[in-house]
Design a protein around this nucleic acid. Structure first.
Lengths: 207, 207
DNA sequence: ATATTTTTCCGAATTGAATCCGAACAAGCG
DNA sequence: CGCTTGTTCGGATTCAATTCGGAAAAATAT
């Protein structure tokens, strides 16, 4: 039964362990990442891992949680800028920011996400969803004409999931059929065209 | 160093092991699936696992490979039907077939894919890509006007990846924001609108 | 300042699953 | 049949995950 850290010192230890998890995982891959590696990198004894984590899995779980919240924190401040852009440019920007984020620190996150997906990736995805939904909501408010577009929730769902996984897949694909920019451009113009088509439909009906 | 099976008997063993892998994984989850479980379900001794597989991981790897090739085999025969449909209906059909496939045998595949993604999912995705690309190629041939649509490779890339992962995500999402049908409909009409928009653009230019 | 309690840290010892290996069993083959 | 080669098996071995009991450090009480 793992304890909650009550003092600053122990909070630092927990942090060091999670951080060490990212480093170890990106250096040696999931198969060769042992508890001893993690402990060594974190500069703590093996026993300490089990003071705050049920088992090795739950360290990965914490990493996956941290990854999602870091992603959300990265996107949050972009919101005001994004909502002012044309939709296709907004999407391209978002995808590029996500890419840069994944490739930060010598691709540490990127090397981890694949394995992270195995643990309980989706269990922790919620915060990211919240932020992205918020971006979309604000966008709709900022461009009232788009409120008439139908199937927004479905398109949102596909856009978010498709976007996340297409980027991850693409960055780990050794020989992608299309360049990253082409892909970003494709998604952007697909959604852009969709909205344009929907709006012109609305215009026709009104007319 | 795993051997290649040369006799029928041993090929059956290899098959039984992979099959047992699916059963064990879907029954007990990745954490509690031991080599002994797999061996027991397959009705072979533990040692036999290591005759044909480097280690436990590579059993999972073989499963992931088999999953992909089963998926491709499921889609292949649908090609002639699909290419005759309007694009949006074709997409809806494909997504629904994929869904049924994943939920077959009490969701055995579905329970495995998440874990499978951790192993080397993308390493084996190629056959599925080939089949889907083939479907799309034939579709383009069957509907020559669509040959003028731009960014086809990018849209294909996003459609395939987005489609696969959106379906998997959706089926393992305990509380999805949209129904499966709404999602399928969303993807279908997004691509449908995209193509329509592109075609009307072409018409305008020609005019 | 000192005693007491709580929190944190540790690493040697334990446990159990993955992997190895050599003996035993079947199949092909002259 | 002998002989060779392919196949199966499960106990023995190895190695990483986890446990545990107590030492050190910090917080709190006296």
């Amino acid at each position: 039964m793992p304890r909650k850290p009550k003092q600053d010192r122990s909070r630092a230890t927990v942090d060091a362990i999670v951080e060490a998890g990212f480093i170890a995982l990106s250096q040696r891959g999931p198969a060769d990442t042992t508890t001893r590696h993690i402990a060594e990198i974190a500069g703590v004894g093996v026993g300490s891992l089990y003071e705050y984590f049920e088992n090795k899995q739950s360290i990965f779980s914490a990493m996956s949680q941290r990854f999602i919240s870091d992603t959300a924190a990265m996107i949050q401040p972009l919101t005001p800028t994004l909502v002012q852009m044309p939709i296709d440019e907004a999407i391209r920007t978002l995808l590029n920011e996500f890419r840069n984020f994944l490739e930060r620190d010598d691709g540490r996150y990127l090397k981890c996400v694949r394995h992270a997906m195995a643990v309980d990736f989706e269990l922790h995805l919620d915060p990211l969803y919240k932020v992205l939904n918020n971006v979309i909501m604000r966008y709709l408010m900022e461009h009232p004409e788009t409120l008439r577009v139908s199937r927004v929730p479905a398109i949102t769902y596909i856009g978010i999931n498709g976007g996340i996984f297409a980027v991850i897949r693409h960055l780990s694909d050794p020989d992608p059929m299309v360049s990253f920019d082409e892909m970003a451009d494709g998604l952007a113009s697909m959604i852009g065209h969709y909205i344009a088509a929907e709006l012109s439909l609305v215009r026709d009906v009104v007319r």
